[in-house]
Design a protein around this nucleic acid. Structure first.
Lengths: 219, 219
DNA sequence: GATTCAGATATTATCTATAATTTCGTCGCA
DNA sequence: TGCGACGAAATTATAGATAATATCTGAATC
């Protein structure tokens, strides 16, 4: 039951590098040296290069011919761009998913919200948050749309992890609950409207809170 | 000034294969054999494999580990999905581009519309149509969004070329003119609404017209 | 006559090696 | 001491070769 059999090496490298980039373990602008990575994974550089191409397509790395591959940098502007794209696409997905949402799915989404509210660190909050969004959108049955949203989620998560390196405070997520409430009433358009505002908040510029720390609103 | 210098071989292979897939020269489901392609381009198979990864990311090819790469098949459902994504993203792009649209740009877009209306074959119509959309959207200054739209355009074009293999009739594009008229008046939201409907029509199922031929509405 | 198993063939995924390009450090000179 | 050019090291891009896997063909058996 080893993952090596169903997955190609390039895939595994891609997945692991993507995780490192998203979590911030690999910082923006850091060089990705194929020989080093190949050595780390005990492979040659060929699968590493293939993994690079996929990371490039996901927007997590940028490659300049003959000058190597670097972890993509991301400006606040870019984060806002991704937020707007996510808002547009998630709303689309939600509209198509709504007719297929069952009480069971909505309950699972509520559980994810509770879990997010009780999360003690960013990592677990992000996991629960992503599960919430995925649960509601997957039933739309549009694979390409979902894949695009997933890629955008990864970039959002990057921003999230970069902003909250260690300090994280528990905040109940009113938007998620409002979305669930509307969906339970069959008011899809209201839910979509909340979702749109909710996701767009990701890119809002960091604001100072009472304790003086820099905070950004996330979704 | 050869393109070989600024572009990697993998890029060139990717571009040429993408064109073949889009134009229908390579049919859906066709196997892409790396050794054959490598031989054709006079290279080894390594850059070919890298090109495959990019085609995969663009949704033009699908790869099963150890079983090779095939030209992606596309159902009417998938075309509709792409149309909806395009509609959502192009509307977003247009909203951000509108403030930066100059009379010069709008005039160029009008020229593109005229050119499309006079196009005698699908290829040239598609080129002019794409130029129209690109002219209006590029000023939004959101590179990732534009790249995503470009990829979706490619899939739309595939459907277009597959539907009109040879027969093509000239039809004036009222939507394009309406969009331009609204933009000239600064009525961005009206323009966006027309654009949204316009793009969504791509995926509408083919209908019979008076002469009995099968037609699909495109945009 | 259909089905299954085995061998042959073709293709993929990977590794090792080579050529070319870039970068970085150092040395010389003003 | 600062600037520029040269050279060495590192890295990328490609080529050729190898092992593993899937597909196809055909025959033998039920």
């Amino acid at each position: 039951m080893s993952a090596t059999n169903e997955d190609t090496i390039a895939n595994r490298i891609c997945r692991i590098l993507a995780e490192r980039i998203v979590t911030g373990e690999l910082e923006p602008g850091a060089k990705l040296r194929q020989d080093h990575i190949a050595e780390e994974f005990g492979t040659s550089h060929v699968p590493v290069r293939e993994a690079f191409r996929r990371l490039e397509a996901q927007g997590l790395a940028v490659s300049e011919p003959r000058r190597g591959v670097r972890v993509a940098s991301f400006s606040l502007e870019e984060v806002r761009e991704v937020a707007e794209m996510r808002a547009a696409l998630e709303v689309l997905a939600l509209r198509h998913a709504a007719p297929h949402l069952t009480p069971s799915i909505l309950n699972q989404a509520e559980e994810a919200t509770v879990e997010a509210d009780n999360a003690r660190d960013v990592r677990s909050w992000e996991g629960a948050n992503r599960r919430f969004h995925r649960l509601l959108l997957t039933p739309c049955g549009m694979p390409r749309l979902l894949a695009a949203i997933d890629d955008l989620h990864a970039v959002s998560a990057r921003f999230l992890f970069a902003t909250w390196r260690s300090d994280w405070e528990v905040r109940p997520d009113h938007d998620h609950r409002a979305i669930l409430a509307f969906l339970r009433q069959g008011r899809t358009e209201n839910a979509a409207a909340v979702l749109e505002r909710h996701v767009q908040r990701i890119g809002q510029k960091p604001v100072k809170n009472a304790s003086g720390g820099a905070f950004a609103i996330v979704g």
